[in-house]
């Protein structure tokens, strides 16, 4: 008898713990995002070399993000990871399709969907929680909407994305095996904001 396999997330079953948090710090495990790591020869400025197909741009419907930023398209988002490396994510497109969409000559595209999971951190104290364990300057003047940073949060490697310019909405991409640890860490960091 055939068995059906269902996709599970590393933070399945945490919704109850997250629900106990105050409105000023809300944590949500976002639904599955397909993620494709794109490597393109750089032109020395952190942008793809001229002449290469803008496969990243094609996926997100805009120009590839500059160093330290990410761009959100209709179907997919592109995150700058390094001078020749971008991460294209999409909650809508299946991994294989996304990989095929951004693959082009002169570069490599690899499906890394299983590598990271996505956590959404929102609320008036969202920035305060992150600043408990992240050394980069997260004030909106230096980490505005559209900023992206590959850094450490509570000693776990994360990709941090700013979704608004007020420091109240972040997306955290964390390695799946660290997701439980980071969720525990975030809940602990948010404890002081309970009323």
């Amino acid at each position: 008898m055939a068995e059906s396999l269902f996709r599970t997330g590393p933070l399945d079953g945490w919704a109850g713990r997250f629900a106990e948090l105050p409105d000023s710090v809300t944590i949500m495990a976002e639904p599955f995002h397909a993620m494709v790591d794109v490597r393109l020869a750089p032109d020395g400025t952190g942008r793809p070399a001229p002449g290469l197909p803008g496969s990243v741009a094609a996926a997100v419907g805009t120009t590839p993000p500059e160093p330290g930023t990410w761009t959100d398209g209709e179907q997919a988002a592109a995150i700058w990871l390094g001078p020749d490396e971008w991460l294209v994510t999409s909650p809508f497109t299946p991994p294989a399709e996304l990989e095929a969409a951004v693959r082009g000559p002169g570069g490599a595209a690899v499906d890394v969907s299983a590598q990271r999971t996505t956590i959404r951190l929102r609320g008036a104290h969202a920035r305060d929680v992150l600043e408990t364990g992240c050394a980069i300057d997260l004030h909106p003047r230096s980490f505005p909407a559209g900023a992206a940073a590959v850094t450490t949060l509570g000693q776990a490697g994360v990709v941090l994305l700013a979704l608004d310019g007020a420091g109240t909405d972040y997306r955290i991409l964390v390695r799946s095996s660290f997701a439980g640890y980071l969720a525990e860490w975030l809940i602990d960091a948010a404890t002081e904001f309970r009323t």
Binding site: G46, P67, G68, G82, P83, A135, I136, A149, V150, T151, T152
Partner: peptide, 17 residues
């Protein structure tokens, strides 16, 4: 902790290096 200027990412903590 000491900050080191990464030419791409700007000032980051020494432990990231």
């Amino acid at each position: 902790m000491q900050l080191i200027d990464c030419p791409w990412c700007g000032p980051r903590e020494e432990v990231e290096f």
